[in-house]
Nucleic acid binder design. Structure first.
Length: 437
DNA sequence: GATGGAAGCCCGGGTTCCTT
DNA sequence: AAGGAACCCGGGCTTCCATC
């Protein structure tokens, strides 16, 4: 068997090589697969030559979800889900390479059947409170979730400097996850890695019942032994029969092809996309709009006002004029929510949040808190929309980041245009700086 | 009473420092 | 160096008060 990965061309982590199911000659790292597989026992990979011999792929064929063309550095993995559980799977663990390493690969049952606790429906994973996944990272995590279908929600954390670098690196475990899956008092727990026989025994440190939960002590050794680096994604789940003290850890490396920016970007609360089309840039064509007060007949539904200003936000004449110009240019089907920035929104207040007028929100926004995508210019931000007492709609979470990135100041006006037919709750924000009126 | 602004409290996680 | 603990800070939520 080729002992170098067909993608990276390197031996790399030998024990993570998956060999071709048919020829047993070609190999590829689990982490180099197009869809990263954390448990080698779940990967069933065919090299390109074998795929061709099976007639499953040609040089010009359109690609199946799990295939890539040769030109695009073809990779193929058939993910064994559900029905495949009982299948004998040939992996690097059963190859001479792994035998040489002397490392035993835990069975898929050991590595992924967590315990009898069920993950709540819809909760694929629990993200560390301070970790924020880029879209690419989300995709990689979801690929893992979808391929392994863990019976218990896994805990996901992006490694930060404090998690991996001495002195005293530690891994914070969110309270909810710790209370559900970790011991109820400070004690040693066991960490294991798929494909490694070595176990690590960090201390699970639980402070004052409700406060901190973190892994310390041998966590450092785990980090060193597994070359965990800043930016790597750590997925952790309780192991069946572990009685809350044994956990399997999967590492999603910040590989070059998955790298999506600096750790600072990845740790950012707001994910920014740069790929929006020019048509999505706000304000275009504004100069073509004639002045004049808005009339209801400018819009399809005369009963629906073109914009809504919260009760407390009175616009001056000049503000009203430019707002109406902008609203006219936007030509939104849904009324525009107007917000004049104040101290508690953008200014000197200790905390920034934005309350969307309830007259607007109660009609046009969901009655349940959720993540909202704010789009401004070429970028998007994710903020958290929370509803208090069923009557007040607040934006927080990523709102401060949005404010900083857009250099919003007191007196600026934001027009929130609700986008229809978006998968996520999305609003385009049109900013009118205070200098414009 | 409805709405909005502002501030305080609490929680949770990261960071740093002290002790062994 | 490792373990333990305190401190700091950001975010979530609630409450109070003012205004209409």
């Amino acid at each position: 068997m080729n002992t170098v990965c067909e993608v990276c061309g390197d031996i790399g982590y030998k024990h993570l090589l998956v060999c071709c199911r048919d020829c047993m000659c070609s190999a590829m790292h689990q982490y180099c697969l197009d869809k990263v597989v954390f448990d080698a026992s779940l990967a069933d990979w065919l090299c390109y030559e074998c795929l061709q011999s099976h007639g499953e792929v040609t040089l010009s064929s359109s690609q199946h979800d799990n295939t890539k063309s040769l030109e695009s550095n073809e990779r193929f993995v058939q993910c064994q889900k559900g029905s495949s559980c009982g299948k004998t799977v040939k992996t690097a663990a059963a190859t001479p390479a792994s035998e040489e390493s002397g490392e035993d690969i835990p069975s898929e049952n050991e590595s992924l059947e967590l315990d009898n606790l069920q993950a709540p429906p819809g909760d694929d994973y629990v993200l560390s409170r301070t970790s924020y996944l880029s879209e690419a990272q989300k995709e990689r995590v979801m690929a893992f979730i979808q391929e392994t279908k863990p019976k218990i929600t896994v805990f996901v954390s992006i490694m930060r400097k404090s998690n991996v670098q001495p002195p005293g690196p530690c891994l914070g475990i969110s309270k909810e996850y710790a209370s559900a899956h970790f011991p109820h008092k400070s004690t040693n727990v066991t960490l294991q890695m798929p494909g490694k026989s070595k176990q690590w025994h960090p201390i699970f440190y639980k402070r004052n019942e409700s406060r901190k939960n973190m892994l310390m002590g041998q966590w450092l050794e785990f980090v060193r032994d597994n070359h965990v680096q800043e930016g790597d994604i750590c997925l952790l789940g309780p192991t069946k029969g572990g009685r809350r003290t044994t956990f399997t850890v999967y590492l999603l490396r910040e590989t070059t092809h998955s790298r999506c920016g600096s750790i600072a970007k990845m740790a950012s609360e707001v994910h920014i996309k740069e790929e929006l089309s020019d048509e999505e840039i706000s304000g275009s064509g504004m100069h073509e709009i004639s002045h004049g007060s808005l009339e209801s007949e400018d819009y399809g539904d005369p009963s629906q006002p073109p914009y809504i200003v919260p009760c407390g936000n009175c616009l001056s004449k000049s503000q009203k004029k430019i707002v109406e110009e902008r609203v006219r240019a936007i030509q939104s089907e849904v009324p525009i929510c107007v917000a004049v920035m104040k101290n508690n929104n953008v200014g000197i207040a200790r905390k920034w949040m934005l309350e969307l007028g309830s007259r607007y929100a109660s009609v046009h926004l969901p009655a349940r808190g959720q993540t909202m995508v704010l789009q401004c210019g070429r970028k998007i931000w994710e903020v958290k929309m929370v509803i208090h007492n069923g009557r007040r709609w607040f934006l927080n979470g990523g709102w401060p980041k949005f404010v900083r990135d857009n250099d919003l100041r007191v007196g600026d006006i934001c027009l929130f245009e609700l986008k229809k037919n978006e998968r996520k709750l999305t609003m385009t924000v049109h900013v009118i700086s205070r200098e414009q009126f």
